[in-house]
Nucleic acid binder design. Structure first.
Length: 858
RNA sequence: GGGCGAGUGGCGGAACGGCAGACGCGCCGGCUUUAGGAGCCGGUGUCGCAAGACGUGCGAGUUCGAAUCUCGCCUCGCCCACCA
């Protein structure tokens, strides 16, 4: 018998991942082991993990995010699917431009260097990425098609230009993306100055056209929290629009949106957003000075002031009165900054008795409060009090609707308004159209030129890509760096050929990432954004993994893209990602987000150098549930190192062991697996034989239970429990070795099952040991083991015996013991009798195969 | 303020109506080693000599039986926050 120590230091060589990991990776790459073949007849499986931003360094979070889907991808392939698992880089964006400003480097050069570095680091993980499909979004060969897609949207009326308020840093004189506005005080990320809103002409994608369809998640398997976040972000509200005529000559009525049309009898004033277009028209001369001052203040105020939690409920009366269409009462028209210009109609009917914001405003400005709903059978509320909304209200003081339940009145009043031509039922959304233009250099230029005669014209497809010029001055001046590049600006109108000016805005990087998964299907196609046949073959993505922080950004935009492209006629499916799984976030040891500025970034390179990449992969997957993440702490990594060291020792071929013909299911063994004693070593003779047979059966049971459970755990992304089960099997193998089972068929079966199950999670060691055992290259091309249900079942059970739910004894019985016999044995137990102390059992509850509970109390 | 999620040993976690603490870290003891390290074996929720009792944030409830289901509260995390 060979001891573990001998195996580790003697014949087999020490467990030293550095001696084989790199070599296997090179061989896999040379053999194109992971290339997804378009012509492969097997069922396709497109597994995708979110591509990274090329910041320059792969950190522990990248390893954590990538290892999970890699395990699943590898298992799926062993299970017979044609798996595509591509990788690329989301390489346009602000941090690179910032580096260009700070360090004086060229963004393209900087990006290329970062990608080279990260690609090399990625390779050390041993993931089965198909690098032949790599996509780099800042490559003109890619962004040419991003520009083409913009054009498709433009032609379909899904891209348009409009005036919009954007975040502006008054100190740097520059527009900021929303994600560059930081913290509760909404300050500029670079200089810490509070941002203000500025009105600028911007490009939008018409996401709101798809608001309703985006709320429909039928047919896709996405985590509930993500669906909820998207649902809340879209924010569908049902209610009514109501027209309030204005007491002024030749003025249109003011339309409001409300979710509570049942409270219209309580509307005692109106409030418009300061930006509402009617304000200029309606304001009476005597109010003009005050109103203009208020509007100007609202415009200048930073958003934080306007959205402050401590609201002053400021506002001014603008002069005229409107008429409540249900009560015919004159009500004053005010403006206030708590009414938002972008939501609903930008105007509200104020019902101070039943809306807390209106209530605060009415109290502050001494406006009337009228109660029009009350709890069923309840009293009118005390004068001046605010009443919390309840579910069983009825209308009061509401004309013909008095006495009707509030729930019924919502529909009835909306209907009557519609009949009167004063509005009617309406739906509104919080979702806004997607602002895609950025006054930035490092992005895909928007392919538009402006002709003095013909206005905004799309750059013809033959002229794409509109390339980013080199040698641009990045110093922040308040306008896009492209605006100071005379040569870039110069263009000709595609309609008349006259001199035109080129658009200098670039696209949001989320546009790039809204279609990269389509490009992976035919990444080298130079004539089209994608080959329709390839997309038909691979799309939709079967399983997508990534961080939950993209819930309402990337994941919503990508869904919009697919639906829009379907309607334009380029695609024939409705959703990009059939299933979605989110990994948790690995935090710094200080429980904070990892960031260079905090200095808490854990670097995997040292650990990989010390333990090898298998140990790092396995450790990351073992520390907890993959979807949970948590603070980084490497203190347990020794346990994984020891585990793989044990596997290393156990899986060395035994002297004389037959390695021809597999002991693993799916590859039928040459000889019987009934548990015969080993051919060499071990105490084979005499009375130990019985023990050996039992141990052999127990080992086979452990093997088959593990095959069953690990496959399920991997598929469910429960990598931590899968690994613990592999450890248990390894422990069982260790016990079997002590009993002298090493070299037996059952032992070989256990070892080879362990290696096959380990292969997705620890691909290098599995390959190395598989090879050392003389098995055919590559373990990653082998069939996934199948389990034998009969072998996985024990023939005896240990049943817990409880009295009134407390554990008192355990019974060991054969699985076919009848219930009456189990009850008799349980009651006959000495420990049970002692605990009963003469009390008679009232009844005995038996859960077959689980437990026995003797109930004595009533 | 609203929504969602989570509270289990010294630590990461497992179990998700049926033996609480699998698996691992750490710690304690032993073997081995010139030594250090590594490795191997055993122990390790709390109290108790033991029998046993107690134990999954707190309090109630449902159940033969609750970490698990229900209700209320506390704490932490994430997302959205004047959305009419």
């Amino acid at each position: 018998m060979t001891t573990d120590t001998e195996a580790r230091t003697g014949r087999a060589g020490r467990f030293d991942p550095a001696s084989y990991e790199q070599g296997w990776r090179e061989r896999w790459q040379a053999d194109a082991l992971y290339r997804a073949d378009d012509e492969d007849p097997r069922q396709k499986h497109y597994l995708l993990t979110m591509y990274p931003y090329p910041s320059g360094d792969l950190h522990i979070g990248h390893w954590y995010a990538a290892t999970g889907p890699d395990i699943v991808a590898r298992m799926r392939r062993m299970q017979g699917l044609n798996v595509m698992f591509p990788m690329g880089f989301d390489s346009f964006g602000l941090p690179t431009e910032n580096a260009a400003i700070d360090r004086g480097v060229d963004p393209a050069t900087w990006t290329a260097a970062n990608i080279d570095q990260m690609r090399a680091q990625f390779r050390t993980m041993g993931c089965m990425f198909d690098w032949s499909r790599e996509v780099v979004t800042s490559d003109p060969a890619y962004y040419r098609w991003t520009q083409w897609l913009f054009g498709e949207f433009f032609k379909a009326g899904l891209a348009y230009k409009a005036m919009a308020p954007v975040d502006w840093c008054p100190r740097d004189q520059v527009v900021l993306a929303r994600e560059q506005v930081e913290g509760p005080n909404r300050v500029c990320w670079r200089c810490g100055t509070p941002v203000v809103k500025r009105d600028l002409e911007q490009w939008f994608f018409r996401t709101t056209r798809y608001a309703d369809e985006l709320l429909d998640f039928r047919g896709i398997d996405w985590p509930e929290p993500i669906r909820l976040m998207q649902t809340n972000w879209i924010g569908r509200s049902e209610g009514a629009e109501i027209d309030f005529p204005v007491e002024a000559d030749g003025v249109d009525p003011i339309r409001v949106f409300t979710t509570r049309p049942d409270t219209v009898f309580g509307a005692t004033f109106m409030v418009l957003a300061p930006e509402h277009p009617a304000v200029v028209v309606l304001t009476t001369p005597d109010r003009r000075a005050e109103v203009e001052a208020y509007v100007e203040r609202a415009r200048r105020e930073t958003e934080i002031d306007r959205m402050s939690a401590e609201r002053e409920r400021s506002g001014v009366f603008i002069g005229p009165y409107a008429v409540n269409p249900m009560t015919n009462e004159r009500i004053p028209i005010w403006i206030a900054d708590y009414v938002l210009p972008g939501y609903g109609t930008g105007a509200i009917m104020a019902v101070p008795a039943h809306d807390e914001r209106d209530y605060d405003f009415a109290r502050r400005h001494e406006l009337p409060i009228r109660y029009v709903v009350a709890p069923t059978g309840g009293e009118a509320p005390a004068e001046g009090a605010f009443v919390e909304h309840t579910s069983d209200e009825v209308l009061v003081d509401s004309g013909e609707f008095s006495g009707m339940s509030a729930a019924d009145a919502i529909g009835a009043i909306a209907q009557q308004l519609a009949d009167l031509g004063l509005g009617g039922p309406a739906v509104t959304y919080r979702l806004r159209d997607w602002l895609v233009s950025r006054q930035r250099y490092w992005g895909a230029p928007i392919p538009i030129v402006y002709c003095p005669e013909h206005g905004a014209q799309l750059v013809p497809e033959a002229e794409l890509p509109v390339r980013l010029p080199e040698g641009v001055d990045f110093a922040p001046t308040g306008v896009s760096p492209l605006q100071s590049h005379a040569e870039f600006l110069r263009a000709t109108c595609p309609v008349c050929g006259a001199e035109a000016r080129r658009e200098t805005d670039t696209m949001d990087t989320f546009v790039d990432s809204s279609w990269y998964f389509l490009r992976y299907c035919s990444p080298h196609d130079e004539l089209r954004a994608w080959d329709p046949e390839a997309v038909k073959r691979w799309m939709p993505v079967d399983l997508y993994t990534g961080g939950a922080e993209h819930a309402v950004l990337h994941l919503l935009y990508a869904r919009f893209f697919i639906k829009a492209l379907r309607d334009i006629g380029h695609l024939s499916f409705d959703e990009p990602f059939l299933a979605l799984r989110n990994q948790g976030q690995i935090l710094g040891a200080d429980h904070q987000r990892m960031s260079k500025s905090r200095g808490n970034v854990a670097n995997p390179d040292e650990l990989v150098a010390r333990y090898g990449s298998d140990v790092v992969r396995l450790f990351l997957m073992f520390i907890g549930p993959w979807d949970q993440g948590g603070p980084w702490n490497a203190s347990g990594i020794e346990g994984i190192h020891r585990f793989l060291g044990r596997v290393w020792a156990q899986a060395q071929p035994e002297p004389g062991e037959a390695v021809e013909g597999s002991a693993v299911p799916g590859m039928p063994p040459a000889q019987s697996l009934a548990g015969e004693p080993p051919g060499s070593g071990g105490p084979a003779a005499g009375e130990l034989l019985g023990t050996i047979e039992e141990m052999s059966r127990a080992l086979r049971r452990a093997t088959h239970i593990t095959i069953r459970d690990v496959g399920e755990d991997y598929a469910d992304f429960h990598f931590n429990t899968a690994i613990s089960k592999l450890m248990e099997l390894s422990n069982a193998i260790g016990k079997a070795r002590d009993t002298g089972l090493a070299g037996s068929a059952a032992y070989g079966e256990a070892i080879e099952a362990l290696l096959l199950l380990l292969a997705p999670a620890a691909p290098h060691i599995a390959e190395e040991l598989w090879s050392r055992r003389g098995r055919p290259y590559s373990i990653h091309l082998q069939a996934w083991p199948t389990f034998d249900a009969a072998l996985a079942t024990a023939d005896t059970l240990e049943l817990p015996v409880q009295i009134d739910g407390k554990l008192r004894d355990r019974l060991v019985v054969t699985v076919d013991t009848p219930a009456e016999e189990i009850e008799r044995l349980a009651l006959a137990s000495e420990r049970v009798q002692a605990h009963l102390g003469g009390r008679p059992p009232r009844r005995v509850v038996q859960i077959p195969g689980r437990l026995v509970n003797i109930v004595t109390s009533g």
